[in-house]
Design a protein around this nucleic acid. Sequence first.
DNA 1: CTACCTGCAAACTTTTTGCAGCCCA
DNA 2: TGGGCTGCAAAAAGTTTGCAGGTAG
Lengths: 133, 133
Amino acid sequence: MKNGDGVKYRMTKQKRVILEVLKNTKSHPTADWVYDKVRKKIPNISLGTVYRNLNILKNQGEILELSYGKGFSRFDGNASMHYHFTCEHCGRILDIETPEFIEMEREVAKQMGVKVARHRLEFYGSCPDCMTD
Amino acid sequence: MKNGDGVKYRMTKQKRVILEVLKNTKSHPTADWVYDKVRKKIPNISLGTVYRNLNILKNQGEILELSYGKGFSRFDGNASMHYHFTCEHCGRILDIETPEFIEMEREVAKQMGVKVARHRLEFYGSCPDCMTD
DNA sequence: CTACCTGCAAACTTTTTGCAGCCCA
DNA sequence: TGGGCTGCAAAAAGTTTGCAGGTAG
């Protein structure tokens, strides 16, 4: 992979706009959604460039990549640690403001004899708009 | 999709062997690994059949599908609720025997005004064999 | 018998990559 | 100026699907 460890990243128009799009949405968009949105400002940008920059931004710690089922990722312009709630009706993904549940890591480390570096926690259910069922 | 709601599932040799393979491993294999393993017993089985049956077994609640990053799923012959620990060195996935942390669901439901149906929790770090670093 | 299931192969989806020219630092 | 970055298009990788014949119940 290019842009490995000791490589200096450059700022380009493409990267700036991609980051802008991600920072200005609360949705947790797919690469394709970002592509569509960015094309409004840079009509001839290619999907490959979007993917390349999403990976760079992720490596730089500017954004988060959230892998959900099968073949697709979503991206989050908010890189600080937070959990997510997915509405199983409308598909919306909401940020959760709860502080991290770190005690769980200690518990698992002790019980399994492993070293826990991090965890990922996802909640699923119905969002306020979809609770009428 | 075939095999929808009211459809009766049949037991076939293929499905039986696939389930056997999954119940007899503690690894959390990919579809491809299952395919290789099953081919030792049914040499001319097709990958499509493996995928079809993995989906059926998942819908029947016999196995779990675990989606990790990018383009691939892993399957777990242990369908009872449990968390997973992934070793970031060797890639091994271990089952965690901790009871479910259900209080978190209540906490999130109250704070966000949502209805939480379930959650998924994944731990990452170093397993006992890889802790020498 | 008859629906469901199978093998095969082609299609699909999402993401990655090779290349030649471009442009940021 | 040089080494990363770009657009384009082709390729990868994982999964799904259409079809015609096979088989469980």
